[in-house]
Amino acid sequence: MKSLDILIVGVGGQGTLLASRVLGKYALESGYDVKLSEVHGMAQRGGSVMTYVRIGEKIASPIIDEGRADLILAFEKLEALRYAHYLKPEGEILYSTQEIMPMPVVTGAAEYPKGIEEQLRGDGVDALDLALQAGNSKAANSVMLGALCKKLGLDREKFEAALLASIPQKTIDMNRRAFELGYAAV
């Protein structure tokens, strides 16, 4: 792994912070320099959120510029499209097919775009359905992390351990199932 710039996007409350911290932990334990940049506060209240994860030999800026991400991990389909222009020409998006209606759509001021998947270069995962299979919709981020682990060819044992060390003890079984389902989905 030379360097890896990953943008994690989603809707505030979906667990993008957990995903970035698991990646950070994994990178650190694998001996890399790593910088994470997060959004707290107002933007967490159901708004569009993005978190940057930069892994490499020596990282300067903690943020990833447009046109420079290797991979986008998207927890929601519209958010995948919103940030797709951050990808490098050869970059790919790993996205959950879950749709969460933004308030302008709920109020009828806008429409949820159709045909998003045709515009995305990468893989879609039905994370919500797989999370429900694992036990609860809240496990969707573990499903996506399972898929990410496979997609990037990361050391599964080490990555799963980084995840399980970052979540409450009582949800470990559910999240392990979710990770497994996500891993098998791509």
Binding site: V11, G12, G13, M42, A43, Q44, R45, G46, G47, S48, D65, E66, G67, R68, L78, E79, L81, R82, Y83, A84, H85, P102, M103, P104, V105, A109, A110, E111, Y112, P113, Q119
Partner: peptide
């Protein structure tokens, strides 16, 4: 500038939970 034009999509402002 490496920036490409973003897709035109509905905004997602933060809301009361």
């Amino acid at each position: 500038d490496t920036a490409a034009a973003p897709a035109q999509v509905p905004a997602r402002p933060p809301v009361l939970c």
